[in-house]
């Protein structure tokens, strides 16, 4: 089993249109680094120059926002679902 990552519509151009991809790692940071290998460019959309999550990007481990867990160091295990969700709904 691997970790499932749910990709929001605006980033699917980087994942060949896929709304879910698989990745591996033991922390959210490792999952993002693994994603970057298979889908170059994805990390820049999620993280700022200092390596933190950009302010307007929310990442969830299962149903919890990682900001309320250990952020990028949040531990993940096989079978977890990571969701990338823009902080906004976009468009009024």
């Amino acid at each position: 089993m691997a970790i499932t990552v749910r990709i929001p519509t605006p980033l699917r151009t980087l994942t060949e249109g896929k709304d879910e991809v698989e990745a591996s790692g033991t922390s959210v940071r490792q999952v993002i680094d693994d994603l970057e290998k298979n889908y170059p460019g994805l990390k820049d959309r999620l993280c700022d120059d200092k390596g933190g999550v950009r302010r307007f990007v929310n990442i969830y481990q299962n149903e919890e926002d990682i900001r309320f867990l250990d952020n990028l160091e949040t531990t993940v295990k096989d079978g977890d679902a990571i969701s990338i969700v823009p902080a906004i709904a976009g468009g009024h």
Binding site: P8, T9, P10, L11, T13, R45, R54, R55, F56, V57, P86, A87, I88, A89, G90, G91, H92
Partner: peptide, 16 residues
């Protein structure tokens, strides 16, 4: 400037 953005209410037209 980007498709995934945090400017609520605004649209990145090329991806919308």
């Amino acid at each position: 400037a980007e498709a995934l953005h945090g400017l609520e209410g605004l649209k990145h037209m090329a991806s919308s």
